[in-house]
Design a protein around this nucleic acid. Sequence first.
DNA 1: AAGACGAAAGTGGTTGA
DNA 2: TCAACAACTTTCGTCTT
Length: 303
Amino acid sequence: MVEERVCPECGSPRIVEDRESGEIICHNCGLVIDERTMDAHPEWRAFNSSQRDARARGGAPMKHSIANRGFTTTIRKGSMDAKGNPLSPQMKAEMYTLMKWHGRTSRISSTERNVSTALKELRRLCSFLGLPEPIIETASLYYRKTVEKKLIRGRLIESVVAAIVYMVCRLQGVPRTLDEIAEVSHSNKKEIGKTYRFLVRELGVNVPLTTPLDYVSRFASALGLSGEAQEEARKILKKVLNEGLASGRGPTGVAAAAVYIAGLMKGERRTQKEVADVVGVTEVTIRNRYRELKTKLGLDIPA
DNA sequence: AAGACGAAAGTGGTTGA
DNA sequence: TCAACAACTTTCGTCTT
């Protein structure tokens, strides 16, 4: 969670973490106060400077999203030494042997190779989806677990990675739809869904149900709606959830209707088609939800 | 002309026997 | 494993702005 503090720009204490971009943002003026990064602090404590010197170690923090967990060495090919001087023939021969043995001794295991390609795919997916580093890290962890439990057998790496991304997004409360993930994955929606269900079962992960509220900020901002309209959509959805009107309905469809209605109420009209395209449902679905919400909630919506 | 509306038929996934 | 079922989509004709 975010610690208590105020915005340096406007002094507002309402500071929120945009979990989509991983940024810490002032809710009032929109100033990006901080970009959420990985915790770069050392894991040890030092009480004075000599202790600090003694305990400090070099190198970047170990990451799960780097194959071999960040510990790799490579020996450069070529006929120059580090300073750019040409090597003697003897040195060249020595280097060759060195490289050969280095390659043999540090040859990564087949599982590490698997993980390595998977992580490349993971990074690619997340970059297309605009997902922040913490998601990548968590997903990497789950991938390793999956490998360790020998659950990838007979499954495409692409499907497993996509399924894990889907799962982690939901776990973090920033769900992407299966459609969105399938769009950028090399696998397809059906495979990803199947793999997802399998992994949830086998890993024993407890994935909370998604609610329409999870989608509001993303859909609203994709439509360029104001924060006010976004709040309105939230208000509507809370009522909807309280009255159980969303049960049995696809969360995205309900979110779409709420965002659509909020737009109308705040004079920021978007066409049903615009909303439909962003959300990934059809206009018909939006109309159906719209009709339900309007009658059951008794909303007065400006024409 | 574009958007909104709703009926009707088709599709894919879940559920329960 | 299969059929019933609900939600959603596709398609299309009509109404509204």
